[in-house]
Nucleic acid binder design. Structure first.
Lengths: 210, 210
DNA sequence: TAGATTGTTAATCGATTAACAATC
DNA sequence: TAGATTGTTAATCGATTAACAATC
């Protein structure tokens, strides 16, 4: 967990602050952010003070000031571009969503055999040209949305193209390596986990009733 | 983290053990499992001993024995059923996948206006009949795969139907409540996080070269 | 001033690891 | 027996929280 959690928290602060700002707010207190992220106010203050994000002992934190600092910390590197490999239903779902507000853009989709030339104004290319495309456009991050049967070899290919970060949706655990960080989104595990938690709390309820 | 992480680890043990078993293995050592999960062997032993899963001081753990215990711990409750609300591209992608091996099954899909009567042998129904369906089939868990604009009200509706666990794919953070546990899959955050990590390690590389 | 909130220190808490005796 | 691996204890480590002085 450690560092990863902290960074995720910073990103969440950022999102919440943007939301607050869009609501017309100027300043926040540590407890507002704590509530929004479901963490303690002390932790918010600790995080901020750790990164020298300063507030005012009476008036809390200036949203703009905090956002400035967060952008700096998280790499205010403009609009980043990613690719999606696999343009089946899942790939299409991802291609149809606009991620600009999240700070990145899907530059292109790749598929062994694209069913159309573009989708949502994003070009779809055959897999063969992945490497030249990634090199030319300096793509660092990509999403795997292919069937599980070809996921491993897709990851291999992407790493071979020089991609350094992969979000994998295929239901198998791919391991990160020195040269490429891989995060797995495992829907099956998530659902299993939900069932477990739900059953837990049912048992607890039963106990407290009985 | 805490409990949630431990349970996720138990689920991962299970998956890895099933894989080992399918490869013909009979026994594992704590360090095999540690390697597979990228955790320490000590933690594996600690976890197992915590749940009274016993091994043999020379021959490691019997895979079947461990699986038996894990199934018991994780709730060996047969095949559970879930519903999907939202049958656009994302919903279709989920409907097209077979989760039987993961211990659950998608019983039905729901949409304001289903484009077809079934998909992958799974019936698709209009949203109006969600409540009677959930009640009749005792559905505990569901997936939100609707656009962000209707996600909040969809969650409300599902909770109102008595659903106790939700996996939310819409890009907004829904909060868990007493009566319903909600897990959010936030693709934007994941990608942002990847960019951050990738940039981090690039900086590190540059430093070690310079 | 009185009141509220930050910033920070010390305490707590829990998860992970090191290490080794027990034992197969 | 010699060697290897578990099971467990004590140590470590880090994250989170409590609490309060500083201060706006």
């Amino acid at each position: 967990m450690e560092q990863k959690d902290l960074m995720l928290r910073l990103m969440k602060y950022k999102r919440v602050l943007l939301q607050f700002k869009s609501l017309g707010l100027d300043r926040v207190y540590s407890n507002n952010l704590g509530d929004a992220l479901e963490i303690s106010a002390a932790l918010v203050r600790k995080d901020f003070s750790h990164f020298k994000i300063e507030g005012n002992r009476r008036g809390g934190y200036s949203i703009n000031r905090v956002l400035e600092k967060l952008n700096h910390l998280l790499g205010d590197s403009g609009l980043q571009e990613i690719v999606i490999v696999g343009c089946g239903n899942l790939g299409k779902a991802l291609l149809n969503h606009d991620y600009i507000r999240e700070g990145f853009r899907i530059a292109a989709g790749f598929d062994i055999n694209p069913s159309q030339a573009e989708l949502n104004n994003i070009p779809l290319y055959p897999l063969e040209i992945l490497k030249p495309y990634v090199l030319e456009h300096h793509i660092d991050v990509g999403i795997i949305a292919v069937p599980v049967s070809s996921a491993m070899q897709t990851a291999e290919m992407m790493i071979n193209c020089g991609i350094k970060g992969i979000l994998n949706f295929a239901p198998l655990q791919l391991k990160s390596r020195e040269e490429c960080r891989i995060h797995n989104v495992n829907i099956g595990l998530e659902i299993e986990n939900l069932f477990f938690m739900v059953n837990q709390s049912e048992k607890k309820d039963a106990r407290s009733i009985g």
